[in-house]
Every structure is written in C-alpha cells, then in structure tokens.
Design a protein around this nucleic acid. Sequence first.
DNA 1: ATAGCCTTGAGG
DNA 2: CCTCAAGGCTAT
Length: 204
Amino acid sequence: MTMDQQTGLMSLNMSPFDLSPGPDGSGSGSGPSGASQQYVPQGAAYQCTSDQQPFGYANLDASYLFPTGTGSEPGTYLPTAGNVCDQTDTKDVIEELCPVCGDKVSGYHYGLLTCESCKGFFKRTVQNKKVYTCVAERACHIDKTQRKRCPFCRFQKCLDVGMKLEGEFVVKIIILLKFNVSHLLRKPSRHKFMYVGQVSGSYE
DNA sequence: ATAGCCTTGAGG
DNA sequence: CCTCAAGGCTAT
C-alpha cells in the first residue's frame, strides 16, 4: 500500500466508526436511493439517551442532541427525520437543520438529511481521499460559522451522524481498514469492527 | 477549499 | 414525466 493510502486510512480510522444499526435492526445497507422520507440514518451516536456522549467526542454539540430552547432562535436544533429522538411532528413546522453544522438541509445526501455544503465537503473528502489533521484535540465544535475551521472534526462529525457512501467503494474502505489499519493502532477500536460487521454483512 | 447551483441518471 | 440524490461546475 502506498504512503498516501496509509495516511488516508489513518485519518479515516481516527473517526469513531459507530454506524451500527439502530434499535430496529434496519441496518441492511440499503441506500438512500431506495429510501422514502421514512429513511432513518444509522447514526447511533446521535440517538437519544440523556447521558450519551459516546466515545468521548466532545465535539458532538450537546445543543444539537438535547435542545433546551424554544427552537425559535437561529441555530437551535430540533429533532428531525435525521435524528431519531422521540419525534413529535416538528418536521412540518420547523426548517430542517443539518445534523453536522446546523445549516439548512438541502435534501438527503449520503444517507441522511444534510446541507449542501456538508454534502459537498463529504464528497470532496472521500473522492479526493483527503487527509485532515486536527490542530486541537479532535473535539472541535462544528457549526455553520465554524465548519471551515477544522475539516478533520467536520468529517468526523459527518461520520458520527451517519453519512456514508454506498457500494463497492465502502467495501474497499472497510477491507482496507480491517486489514491494514488495525495493526497500526495500539488500541484497535471496537467501534470500527462494529462498522465492518454491519457493512460487510449487507453485501453477503 | 468552500459552497451554491446545475446536470445527469435511476427509479417510480 | 416527475422526483431525488450523486456528481460536476464554478464563483468566491
């Protein structure tokens, strides 16, 4: 493997790959193309338990998870189809917000409702095999105004909330992760292998 | 590099 | 034919 691949994989592997299926076990790997408006992304990390700060990623903005405000102020997050907290029917009333940065969503992209910029960012990152580094502690706050500041944490958050590509490319990434990256880490992440299991299973 | 807009193609 | 998501294009 080339050095370029290695660094890329290291970058990917630093993200918490907890894309395990939701409680309904619907993690079949079916893509958004086959999804209706009921499509629920598999972003387990963003589901609701009151004490959830999974895996110690402080950049998971708690205000996105557990809104306490009225929802009237800009940037306030309320549950949407992309965030399966005990949903009331706020969807019809409140403009949907990107689970990554809180910007206005433009549709389903890579598995869930996101804004146009995060869609493009995710696309560029994956297609160009971008390798980012975080100058802080991989826990940067990501919102609409600060999303440009740390692409590492932004991409990490994209993965956290459940953005994913479909098809062969993902399988290749998973295989590479499984066979080439785990040994590079002193402490392999169990979450990574949860992800591997889910995705590889869907292609059996 | 980012983000908004446009084009394309697949599926219903 | 319509809708929607992926990818392309381009101004910033």
